[in-house]
């Protein structure tokens, strides 16, 4: 870890944190601009909370259709997050550790779902896995129909959420460096052992925060689900779709459900998401270092 050498006058701004010097000085005006930025996010949330009809809140969010949507959302988001981990970890490892032709292009392509509108993602899925789609055509012949099923919801969510996990984990992998992996390898550990015993424990905090971000993104998925999976209570109508539909006839129910969705997302993120500290600490506890 680099140690900053500062002119004497600036040393007050540097304070001892752990065993390393870290520069923590921030110009005063940064606070002002940051406060405006924070308010820009918080004010609309406050505006919505102010609209919630608390007297009816319980009744509004426990209606049959609301509960079906909530349960479906939680189930599909959990399944999608699991898929993101299964496919995202190898992708992040390849991007951070391996070197191969087309690596940059692969990274750019994996970022695509972050950039394109989810509706476009939904259309892409439709034209690939739909009944008339590239792969869907053959799947239909063997009796597999994906569209209008819960599977389609999970696929749509995984599609939009995967980049969150890959990006997050790739960043952690690069920050962690390869020192310990190299040492393990020189001691005779096979690549599989290094991955299991060194790499994964080292980046676990990054993996968890990536998974949490993916889960939150899955909970909020709307466009791709609507385009690819349709909307049927208990099968494909997740919370965001239910909110959009309720808004047509019962804006109060839509606001109550929106609040519930935000509360669930905030709860999940607050309980599990940590800004990953220096990944080395995850592997080497402070007590163990000299």
């Amino acid at each position: 870890m680099p140690v900053l050498v500062l002119p004497k006058s600036n040393r007050q701004a540097a304070r001892v944190q752990g065993r390393t010097w870290q520069y923590t000085g921030v110009p005063k005006w940064i606070y002002l601009v940051a406060a405006v930025g924070a308010l820009f996010i918080l004010l609309p949330l406050t505006g919505m909370v102010a609209q919630v009809n608390w007297g009816q809140f319980g009744a509004l969010v426990t209606s049959e259709s609301s509960l079906a949507a909530l349960v479906l959302s939680l189930k599909t988001a959990a399944a999608s997050t699991a898929l993101c981990i299964v496919f995202g970890v190898p992708l992040a490892l390849l991007l951070a550790r391996a070197q191969f032709l087309g690596q940059r292009i692969l990274r750019a392509l994996i970022l695509l779902p972050l950039i394109v509108p989810p509706v476009v993602g939904g259309l892409a899925l439709l034209y690939t896995f739909g009944r008339q789609g590239l792969i869907g055509k053959s799947l239909t012949l063997v009796g597999i129909d994906i569209a209008f099923s819960t599977t389609a919801v999970i696929m749509a969510q995984t599609f939009v959420a995967l980049p969150f996990l890959v990006l997050s984990l790739e960043g952690t992998l690069r920050t962690a460096g390869q020192k310990y992996e190299a040492v393990a390898a020189t001691l005779g550990a096979r690549p599989g052992t290094v991955l299991r015993r060194i790499t994964l424990p080292l980046v676990l905090p990054g993996l968890i925060s990536g998974a949490v971000l993916s889960f939150a993104r899955c909970l909020g998925e709307f466009g791709a689900t609507l385009t690819f999976a349709g909307s049927l209570q208990g099968v494909t109508r997740t919370m965001p779709l239910e909110i959009y539909l309720q808004r047509e006839t019962d804006p109060e129910a839509a606001v109550a459900l929106s609040f519930l969705l935000i509360a669930v997302a905030v709860l999940v993120v607050a309980l599990t998401y940590r800004v990953p500290k220096s990944p080395l600490r995850a592997l080497v506890s402070p007590e163990a270092t000299p």
């Binding site: 439709l126 034209y127 739909g130 008339q132 209008f148 609507l226 385009t227 999976a229 349709g230 909307s231 049927l232 209570q233 494909t236 109508r237 779709l241 959009y244 539909l245 047509e248």
Partner: peptide, 16 residues
């Protein structure tokens, strides 16, 4: 199999 949120979505599911 699906109750769409707009008539355009219904149409899209049929044309595709």
């Amino acid at each position: 199999v699906s109750e769409e949120l707009s008539v355009t979505s219904v149409l899209g599911k049929v044309t595709s």
